[in-house]
């Protein structure tokens, strides 16, 4: 697995995509830092961008990379390596190179603005953690969708739908159900609903850390009330781990039965 990881990582980190992505994050971060001139405010603004962009980047690049390297997989799978190792290696190569683009793109400007000696350092790290988790999760979802769909167009379509669902539709349905069932106690429901959407729990995670009660929103407030910040953060971290592992597991299951 390490060898496959090494090759796909090398290939990707040299590619122009990682570079462009890193530059994009850097430009946005520099812009926001310059305009707000306040680290915590820049973090809140960036949060909104990252919650939207990172899942899209993860899922689109994941699906593109998978279908692009599909021809090559035939050559590699005919070698004495395990299927599992091949797919895990590919996934790690892609997702880690994207995470590195993200971390460097955000990290460099913040370091230059002295985030390490400010009181926003933990908030900044939380943002990094949430953003990286989103990339890992949506990359894994992309690999699962791509492995399960031999047809490229179908795979692309499903991936975009998945992103649309989590980024936009989910919140709409969530809000609607809160309205419809407003006369019932909805705390447990809203906690579960939040943990079922990686974008939502990433938002709540950053909110809890920032401790800006004005921005909590309903779910943030529920989390705060029920668990306090600390347990809430732990719970969300656990959910993030499960959200990375389960699509990888599904991908490996689909890969096992797949014909090349």
């Amino acid at each position: 697995m390490l060898k496959i990881f090494k090759y796909s990582f090398q290939d990707l980190i040299r590619s122009k995509w990682s570079f462009i992505l890193g530059l994009f994050y850097m430009a946005v971060t520099f812009g926001l830092l310059y305009m707000s001139n306040d680290l915590s405010r820049a973090i809140v603004s960036l949060m909104n961008i990252i919650l939207f962009i990172n899942p899209l980047v993860g899922i689109m690049l994941g699906i593109m990379y998978y279908y692009n390297s599909r021809d090559f997989s035939e050559l590699l799978l005919a070698q004495p390596i395990k299927r599992k190792d091949y797919f895990l290696g590919q996934y790690l190569g892609l997702s880690l190179s994207l995470v590195i683009s993200f971390v460097l793109g955000l990290g460099v400007p913040f370091l230059l603005y002295g985030v390490l000696v400010s009181d926003a350092v933990v908030n900044f790290l939380t943002l990094m953690f949430a953003g990286s988790a989103l990339v890992l999760i949506f990359c894994a979802l992309a690999f699962w969708v791509a492995t399960a769909n031999e047809n490229k167009i179908k795979g692309f379509g499903k991936a975009i739908l998945l992103w649309l669902f989590f980024a936009i539709l989910y919140d709409g349905i969530f809000l609607l159900s809160l309205l419809v069932f407003e006369s019932y106690p909805l705390e447990k429901f809203s906690i579960a609903a939040t943990l079922l959407n990686p974008i939502d729990f990433s938002r709540v995670l950053i909110m809890l850390q920032l401790d800006v009660s004005l921005l909590f929103g309903y779910t943030g407030a529920v989390f705060n009330k029920f668990f306090g910040s600390y347990v809430g953060i732990l719970l969300i971290t656990g959910a993030a781990v499960i959200w990375v592992i389960s699509p990888i597991f599904m991908m490996l299951r689909a890969a096992k039965r797949k014909d090349f």
Binding site: D71, E74, L75, A78, R83
Partner: peptide, 18 residues
């Protein structure tokens, strides 16, 4: 199994590489 492929060399029909 996987390791038996150590004993097999394969030339696929269409040569497609990265």
């Amino acid at each position: 199994q996987d390791l038996y492929r150590k004993k097999i060399n394969y030339m696929p029909q269409i040569a497609r590489f990265p």
